[in-house]
């Protein structure tokens, strides 16, 4: 077997670590493509109300005569072309997907921010104070992580009922533990370093040391876990909505669109659930590709 020598680093010497990381990231063409794709998807989702051909939830714009048209058909009433076909109620799938993307990304994004906040505070606190508090918090984290995320989320939603706010709550409860564990394990290493001792000798308040000194040094692994987790959050939300316990019918995410089209799949009207699925998968793949590259570039010790 021949061994290939590692590719020599091509990045020009640059000064700041941030620029070095960006330069290294840019070396991987697939990752750059993933990043561009994700940015495009995010812009499309944000701009949905302005660029979608119709408002899919304004019933006055829907024409029942246009129900379940295959992609490329022209509407009976107006001369609008349905690029991706229509669903059983005559809703333009392209518009529905853009709006659905918006809800999917919003749910995942909000839950990500909340979960990072909770997880970071808990993780830094555990690492900084150590002792009994630390071992208690880590017991709780380990206990939670020993159960599959989907099971916990499903049970929470079965008890709470469906709704966008409830899905966000369930995602936060499922995800905070990953961040707590990641932050705690890097903070516990940082805590032993001299700059923390120096800060303590200055009698700075605990809060300031924890969040202004310790936390900034724990960010790289946090970014890697966050990219993995946001892809997971999007997939989990879609799964929950597909199972019928996620977002309500009035605010359909991609998962719910796929579920609505599922019954028509067997009768050959594939477009109602295939296209939302492709949008969902492209989003997740783009994030995963970026995350994979970030992991290599930031190179933390892999947690879990």
């Amino acid at each position: 077997m021949t061994t290939h020598p590692a590719a020599p680093p091509r990045a020009a010497p640059v000064d700041s670590p941030t620029r070095r990381i960006i330069a290294q990231f840019m070396e991987d063409r697939v990752a750059v493509l993933g990043l561009i794709l994700f940015i495009c998807i995010a812009i499309l989702a944000l701009m949905a109300p302005w660029i979608a051909p119709q408002n899919p939830y304004d019933l006055s714009q829907l024409n029942i005569m246009d129900g379940a048209l295959p992609p490329g058909e022209v509407s009976f009433g107006t001369d609008m072309t349905y690029m991706l076909g229509t669903d059983q109620q005559g809703r333009d799938m392209l518009s529905a997907i853009l709006y659905g993307l918006r809800i999917s990304l919003m749910v995942a994004g909000v839950s990500l921010l909340l979960a990072i906040t909770v997880g970071t505070i808990v993780g830094v606190t555990a690492a900084y104070f150590g002792g009994r508090l630390d071992s208690f918090i880590m017991r709780v984290v380990d206990l939670q992580l020993s159960f599959p995320a989907i099971l916990i989320a499903l049970i929470l939603l079965a008890l709470l009922g469906r709704g966008v706010d409830k899905v966000i709550l369930a995602l936060v409860i499922v995800q905070w533990a990953y961040y707590a564990r990641t932050v705690r394990s890097s903070a516990i290493v940082e805590r032993r370093k001299d700059y923390v001792d120096a800060a303590r000798c200055l009698a700075l308040p605990h809060r300031r040391i924890m969040f202004r000194h310790l936390l900034p040094n724990c960010v790289p692994p946090l970014i890697v876990v966050a990219t993995v987790q946001i892809a997971q959050a999007i997939a989990l939300e879609a799964t929950l909505s597909f199972l019928g316990v996620g977002v309500p019918i009035t605010e359909p995410s991609l998962g719910l669109l796929i579920a609505n089209g599922y019954d028509y799949l067997l009768s050959g009207r594939y477009w109602i659930s295939l296209f939302p699925g492709i949008a969902l998968v492209l989003t997740i793949i783009a994030i995963n590709v970026v995350g994979d590259r970030l992991r290599d570039v930031l190179n933390p010790r892999l947690q879990k």
Partner: peptide, 15 residues
Amino acid sequence: SILGFSLPNFWQGML
């Protein structure tokens, strides 16, 4: 394997 990670379980089943 990245594809296997990225395809949500239910959608992959539908495919």
